[in-house]
Design a protein around this nucleic acid. Structure first.
Length: 648
DNA sequence: GAACCACGCGCC
DNA sequence: AAAGGGCGCGTGGTTC
């Protein structure tokens, strides 16, 4: 058997959409809207560098087929693999075995903040000097642009004007290849290599397949919904235009007066400057500036209710409304508008409706229409963006889809969607890490966590079993406040939550409630203190999956260490469980696919006939972690089930 | 015209 | 002592 050899590959892509001229065009990132211009390859034989450039993908395919001992190293390989596989180079995902980007994610030693800032300054300098070609975008802490100069000590490098330059693609590939061995040594020393190899890499492969599979949309619903939201937004706007016509007129008058002042001043100045001040010259000057004034009046923009600053003027200055939020700051956000609407402002109700519908009509429906190919939406999932270790999603972001639109996401014919989410995962993990006896008791005994908080907040001793039915409003408020305080919120947050519901509690009372809640979870408060101290001392914080994060700025620790640990662990637990479930389903010959994850939720597509079986496997894999504490195991729970669409 | 920022809002 | 955190995207508005 021939020995495996690592080969670094890097794809350069460009926008392949006819007539696209968008400056912030993302098409080069979307397989079916991109073209691969060139692929660079770099490897070493007995320490000697070998380089090769492929412009013909058939040639690359032949090359890879001919040398099966070549295993692939690629920086953010999910992207390159996706591009290559989409464009006909059918590389099995198992052949992608190294990814320096994921190594950098696993490493708790990061590129320092001041280096990033230095690089940022360099980048801006370069962009300014650039004559043509695309500007360089901000480089994140896990980008090759930053990692290579920092860890390899090479100069910052920039893409050439002609994008398929041989030298450039080879440089990229070589840096990725060399970065790999530097980081490999680092990860070994840190004890993070296993996390990289056994967790991040398999997860990234898992997302590669999820992205390739994509999720089916009900395009009839999309088209209907798009038309409907546009119509409703238009309707709300027209009604508002009528109600606010006097305000628009006033704004216009004000703008005209301002222009009159402005041009009047210019006119006076010009007349004063006249060398020969004949009546004729003066008359001409006046005519000139009056003409300019009239031109400017023509150009006065109509009132734009999409502009927060204009809205502020209308609501506050013209209508005389109080637009202070519960945090004391002026704003036109939903919180302020909802208060005004509750006070009976019909126009503000319409504005809220307008906002809601324009959000759908400008953000979500267009994305479905433009980004779905053949009715299938292929989002992208990123393991290297969120500092906590959560995944993020983009192009489009599948993790912020409005609940009201989720029926658009459907299972393919013959399949079902298996939608499962981890129940109260964050309180569960807080109980595990903090070993707080009270929190453990509430969760282990299946008591009502929010009801418990309601009693603390209202100073009552209500029956926990009956509270959900008898005092839903109080429980709902406790849900918001209790979780917030557990995550670190204070009195301000409580004031906001209570004022929203019509309470008028003093700052002092709110601070007292926050303090009472912290005292109600003594273990949590202690643990947070200890964790903060460790983080401030620069100690890397390790979670149960081997993910490590270090804080280098002691001032940045407040709340971050704790939230990062909890969020990151929740995310890791979901991904790990999902990955194991998929392996098991595949090993049983089930044609199951992951479609997406949303932090504590997964959506799989499973064959109709085996959906129950899959449900059982997923449920078991998500709950079989042993969350041991001195008081016993903290139970993990899973909710959700089998459906045709993404709804519960 | 491009880059950047603030705001607002969808989700967890 | 006090403090929620994490994302991506569209729009308006400013600046170079």
């Amino acid at each position: 058997m021939s020995q495996e050899i690592l080969i670094g590959l890097d794809c350069e892509t460009e926008c392949a959409v006819d007539g696209c001229s968008g400056s912030d065009c993302q098409h080069a990132l979307i397989p079916h809207q991109a073209r691969i211009t060139v692929v660079g390859a770099y490897w070493e034989v007995m320490g000697a560098p070998c380089r090769r450039v492929f412009r013909d993908l058939a040639e690359l395919r032949l090359f890879l087929d001919t040398f099966p001992e070549l295993m692939i190293l690629a920086f953010n390989g999910k992207f390159d693999m996706k591009m290559l596989r989409y464009h006909g180079v059918n590389i099995p995902i198992e052949r992608w075995v190294e990814d320096p980007c994921l190594q950098a994610v696993a490493s708790y030693v990061k590129v320092p903040e001041d280096y990033l800032q230095w690089y940022e300054a360099k980048r801006k300098e370069h962009n300014k000097a650039r004559k043509k070609g695309r500007a360089h975008r901000e480089a994140g802490q896990h980008s090759l642009k930053v990692l290579a100069p920092y860890f390899l000590g090479v100069d910052p490098f920039w893409e050439p004007e002609d994008h398929d330059d041989d030298q450039y693609v080879l440089l990229d590939t070589e840096y990725a290849y060399k970065l790999h061995s530097v980081l490999q040594t680092m990860l070994k020393e840190q004890g993070t290599e296993t996390f990289y190899r056994e967790k991040l890499l398999p997860w990234s492969r898992m997302f590669l397949e999820a992205e390739e599979r994509g999720v089916m949309l009900d395009m009839d619903l999309v088209n209907r919904g798009a038309a409907e939201s546009e119509a409703m937004a238009k309707e709300a706007k027209e009604a508002l235009d009528k109600l606010w016509a006097p305000a628009y007129a006033a704004q216009r008058l004000q703008a005209k007066a301002q222009l009159a002042d402005q041009y009047g001043a210019m006119e006076t100045k010009a007349i004063a400057k006249l060398k020969v001040s004949t009546d004729e010259r003066v008359r001409k000057t006046i005519e000139k500036y009056h003409g300019l004034y009239l031109q400017a009046v023509e150009k006065i923009e109509p009132f734009n209710m999409g502009s927060p600053s204009q809205l502020k003027w209308l609501l506050r200055d013209y209508l005389g409304l109080d637009i202070h939020g519960y945090d004391g700051k002026e704003s036109t956000d939903a919180e302020v508008l909802e208060r005004l609407a509750a006070e009976g402002r019909e126009d503000v109700k319409l504005l809220l409706k307008y906002r809601e519908q324009t959000k759908l009509a400008s953000t979500y429906f267009p994305a479905y229409k433009e980004m779905a190919r053949d009715g299938i939406l292929h989002g992208s999932f990123n393991l290297a963006t969120a500092r906590t270790g959560r995944t993020s999603s983009s192009n489009p972001n599948l993790q912020n889809q409005p609940r009201s639109l989720r029926q658009i996401f459907r299972a393919r014919p013959g399949y079902k969607l298996l939608v499962k989410d981890l129940g109260a995962i964050e309180p569960t993990l807080i109980a595990y890490y903090s070993e707080c006896p009270v929190l453990y008791d509430v969760l282990a005994a299946g008591k009502d966590f929010h009801g418990f908080n309601a009693n603390v907040i209202f100073g009552q001793d209500w029956d926990l079993k009956a509270l959900k039915k008898e005092r839903p409003a109080e429980r709902d408020m406790a849900k918001e406040i209790g979780l917030s305080v557990l995550y670190g919120a204070g009195g301000t947050r409580i004031r906001i939550a209570s004022m929203k519901r019509g309470y008028h509690w003093s700052d002092e009372k709110c601070r007292q409630i926050a303090s009472n809640l912290r005292a109600a979870w003594p273990g949590v408060t202690d643990f947070k203190r200890q964790l903060d101290a460790a983080a401030r001392a620069g100690k890397p914080i390790t979670n149960m999956f081997g993910r490590k994060r270090q804080f280098t700025d002691p001032d940045d620790v407040a709340m971050h260490a704790f939230n990062s640990l909890i969020q990151g662990t929740g995310s890791d637990l979901l991904l790990d469980g999902t990955h194991r479930a998929l392996q098991e389903m595949r090993s049983k010959g089930i044609d199951a696919h992951l479609l997406m994850t949303v932090h504590d939720e997964l959506i799989c597509e499973v064959p109709e006939g085996r959906a129950e079986e899959c449900d059982a496997i997923v449920t078991r894999c998500l709950t079989d972690y042993k969350l041991e504490t001195p008081h016993g195991l903290v139970p993990l729970t899973v909710e959700g089930g089998i459906a045709d669409t993404w709804t519960k």
